[in-house]
């Protein structure tokens, strides 16, 4: 089946089998390997990308479902050669260790800040509770998202 999707602003057309999972389409067909696979049961969230701005687990979607939709993956966070606030914050606050959960965490954080520019610690912990991390213990991930929200607010008010 033929599909056309927009990923990080670029349009792609491809002929795919209906059973191809969206995550495999992103990783294999588009070569965007920053989106990962960590489980079989929609539990870990490392496959999360933003579909029309909303975080979705791409291991539990077929590529054909994404036809005509617009997606942002971790590779699309950097704009005009500049790291986004959330990327900076994860580095600054040691929000990652092995980096495997990180792309998804940053995308979920981005969507959260978009919706709620001033999230509390509980808001953040709640928002990332569909995403597992085995390395960091979450403390610094929460800090990173808090800091990114603050930078984003400052950027918006200045």
């Amino acid at each position: 089946m033929n599909i056309t999707v927009t990923v990080n602003g670029a349009e792609h057309t491809a002929d795919v089998e209906p059973r191809l999972l969206l995550v495999d389409f992103i990783r294999t067909n588009l070569g965007l390997t920053g989106t990962h696979i960590g489980c079989d049961t929609t539990s870990c969230g490392v496959c999360t990308v933003l579909v029309d701005g909303t975080p979705m687990k791409t291991c539990t979607m077929f590529a054909v479902q994404a036809n005509g939709r617009s997606m942002v993956t971790v590779e699309g966070l950097k704009q005009n050669g500049e790291l986004s606030a959330i990327q900076d914050a994860f580095r600054e606050h040691h929000g990652l260790q092995c980096g495997f959960c990180t792309p998804a965490m940053m995308l979920v954080g981005t969507a959260l800040i978009e919706e709620n520019p001033d999230p509390t610690e509980d808001d953040i912990r709640w928002a990332i509770s569909g995403n597992l991390c085995r390395c960091t213990g979450y403390v610094n991930i929460v800090k990173s998202i808090e800091a990114a929200a603050e930078t984003t607010r400052e950027g918006a008010s200045s």
Partner: peptide
């Protein structure tokens, strides 16, 4: 129900 990302779908 489920988790925040699953709830989006």
């Amino acid at each position: 129900i489920a988790d925040p990302i699953v709830r989006n779908l």
